[in-house]
Simulated scan of single mutants.
Amino acid sequence: MNLRQSTLVVKLTPLYGNQVADFQLVTEGYQNIVFRCTHQEETVFIRVAEARRRSVSMIEAELEWLRILRDSGIIVPSPRKSNKGNCIETISLGEDTFYAVAFSKVHGRPMDVTNSQLWNPQLFEKWGETLGRIHSVVPKRQIARPYWGEPLTSASETMAFFEKNEDCILKVRLFETVAQIENLPRSADTFGFIHNDFHQGNVLVHNEGIGIIDFDDCVYGWYAQDIAAALYHAFWQATALGGSDLSFGFSFLQSFLKGYRKPHNLSSEIVRQIPIFLRWREFFLYAVFMKNWPLDSLEIWQTYTLECLRKRIKNGEPYIPLSSNELMLLSEIR
């Protein structure tokens, strides 16, 4: 652990653990720091977020949404109270403030694109069905989370990065896409509460079904955005590591959307929007990587990834080829 992580552990220990040695760093991701420890005889994961990125009310709304999903039979983490009896703890490090939340462990195995026993059309269908179930859960009252593009969302952070750091042509491409998104219809069939980072890294597979983790970015947005995130990262991993070819995108969606439409209406408008949000994912990832990767000591694959993202964004090239005929066929899936 680095100095900041070690100092956080010292602050967290009286709240969740017995001694500093109980804590293990799981990851310092692009947005949060996550530790694992034994708390009240249970393995928990403690997410630590900077207060400049998340307000207490936003975290409370996230926890409310998780409760609603659990009550609907969806496998998601449960918050665990600290030794002080709080679901959210405030931690100060000098001038910086952090919010800590402990979550129960969601059991299951990560998806492995090289394992055909796990990575197959049957799994894609079940994965899509799980997302359809999430999108079918409509809160009885407004959840206090922002709408896509509002302050303290990943979309607003992406736009702010391009405004400050990128050249004119990339800014033009960004705001062309933003304008396209903001003009999309917001009907009950296409718009609602979304996970907002629904890639396979946040999916765990076990005998009881599929568990979903990391709702930190949840917002009101377009359902197609969650579908596009799943497709984008599945395609990336399957073609880079799993030996799949460019046809994987269409075949993946055939299975995924077959499952999705079981609990949720799959309108042709949702399918039409998928390429738009595949493009948005490129802007989002480019900004995240540029902010978090060591630009003066990039590995070869990181340099290649950034070059490809920049080229596709600049030239308006799609990452995943989906023809208009394929989109029409996907709209008709039963």
Rank of each mutant, 00 (worst) to 15 (best):
I227N: 06
I227D: 06
A230V: 03
A230P: 12
A230I: 09
F235L: 03
W236H: 10
A238D: 09
A238T: 07
T239K: 05
A240S: 09
G242F: 00
S244H: 02
S244V: 00
D245H: 02
L246W: 00
S247P: 08
F250R: 06
S251G: 08
S251H: 09
F252Q: 07
L253G: 00
Q254K: 13
F256N: 03
K258P: 13
G259Y: 01
R261V: 10
P263A: 04
P263Y: 01
H264P: 11
N265Y: 09
L266E: 11
L266P: 09
S267K: 07
S268R: 14
Q273R: 05
P275Y: 05
P275F: 01
F277K: 05
L278M: 09
R281F: 03
E282M: 08
F283G: 06
V288D: 08
M290G: 01
M290H: 04
M290R: 15
K291D: 12
N292A: 11
W293A: 09
W293V: 07
P294L: 01
P294M: 00
P294I: 00
L295F: 04
L295P: 13
D296F: 05
S297N: 15
S297D: 11
E299S: 02
I300D: 15
W301L: 15
W301M: 11
Q302P: 07
Q302T: 03
C308W: 10
C308G: 14
L309R: 04
L309D: 11
R310N: 00
R310I: 08
R310A: 05
K311S: 13
K311V: 03
R312E: 13
R312Q: 13
I313W: 05
K314W: 05
N315H: 11
E317R: 05
E317P: 07
P318E: 04
Y319K: 15
